[in-house]
């Protein structure tokens, strides 16, 4: 039987198992889900010698406090995260983008993310999770994925099997940069908005609201005036789509978004900026910058290449 496990002494605010998410289910109402920040998710796996799509633990703001029992195991944390490794006789502050070894009885206290939302914990082994539609990603709204589709709770145990015996130390020199300008392609309902509304959208600052989660990011700021209709016939959504309901406050769809929506789409965040967008904390100010499709495609290629380069350096 399995003897390697974490005891969750404190679960944290929004701690879930994730992998890259699940495809081809939009038509029955199931979104992609998956790790919000795909780059940091993949890097965490590489730092512990796993395949890039292994299940990891994603946390937001405050992370979990875990006590480890079992044979020696490596772990790595990515993002911008403060954490402490508590050994029998001492405690050391850990660094992100570096692997560390946990021994039987050690504690890992993931205190908080610094001025960012999501962090990732990978271990050199396989979390024992259940898969639905080939993914362990937890969608708490539909209770799909690992851990019965629920957040990790205080007091539960998380089991790990197939620990990699080769615990080599790995490290990456990388600092997460923040963005303030979010690049956007015009949406399919762009002309529903007044000239003034369009101008506001691309020129004024918006503040990220506290009512933001894995489903969506609500924004506050000057109202965007709709001159055609504040409803459309409900139709498909994607992550990154920016809808504007009748109150004039934009909402950006994120990884657990509803698959269908009925508010006009003023824009779509380009794929290259998504990982950085999700890391912006409530209260952050952002501006939208218009780009064309061809530029968005090039920017994504560059971003993806940069991610590959980072991974290959590990």
């Amino acid at each position: 039987m399995n003897k390697n496990y974490f005891e969750i002494k404190r679960a944290g605010i929004n701690t879930t198992f994730q992998d890259k998410g699940r495809d081809n289910l939009y038509h029955i109402g199931i979104p992609f889900s998956g790790a919000m920040d795909n780059r940091n998710f993949q890097i965490s796996n590489k730092l512990v010698g796993n395949e890039l799509n292994f299940p990891i633990i994603e946390f937001a703001y405050q992370g979990p406090l875990l006590k480890y029992f079992g044979e020696n195991i490596n772990f790595a944390i990515t993002g911008d995260v403060k954490f402490i490794i508590k050994k029998k006789n001492n405690a050391i502050e850990g660094n992100c983008y570096q692997s560390f070894t946990l021994e039987n009885g050690d504690e890992l206290d993931i205190i908080s993310t610094n001025k960012s939302v999501y962090g990732y914990l990978a271990v050199s082994g396989e979390f024992d999770v259940n898969y639905q539609w080939s993914s362990c990603s937890v969608n708490t709204k539909a209770n799909i994925g690992a851990n019965n589709g629920k957040k990790i709770k205080d007091g539960q145990n998380i089991y790990i099997s197939n620990i990699n015996k080769n615990l080599s130390d790995k490290k990456l020199n990388y600092i997460n940069t923040k963005i303030e300008n979010i690049r956007v392609i015009q949406g399919t309902n762009f002309d529903y908005f007044s000239d003034k509304g369009k101008k506001i959208f691309f020129e004024k600052e918006f503040v990220i609201s506290k009512l933001s989660d894995r489903m969506g990011m609500r924004l506050e700021g000057p109202k965007i005036e709709n001159i055609v209709d504040t409803n459309i016939k409900s139709e498909g959504l994607l992550k990154g789509v920016i809808q504007v309901p009748a109150d004039g406050n934009p909402i950006i769809m994120l990884s657990d978004h509803g698959t269908i929506g009925g508010y006009p789409k003023i824009g779509v965040v380009i794929s290259a900026d998504y990982d950085k967008l999700v890391q912006l904390t409530p209260g952050s100010k952002i501006k939208f910058k218009k780009v064309e499709l061809a530029d968005a495609e090039t920017l994504f290629k560059l971003y993806d290449l940069e991610t590959e380069n980072l991974i290959s350096q590990i």
Binding site: G29, I30, G258
Partner: peptide
């Protein structure tokens, strides 16, 4: 159609 949330 079905969607928005699972099965709706």
């Amino acid at each position: 159609m079905t969607g928005f949330i699972a099965g709706m």
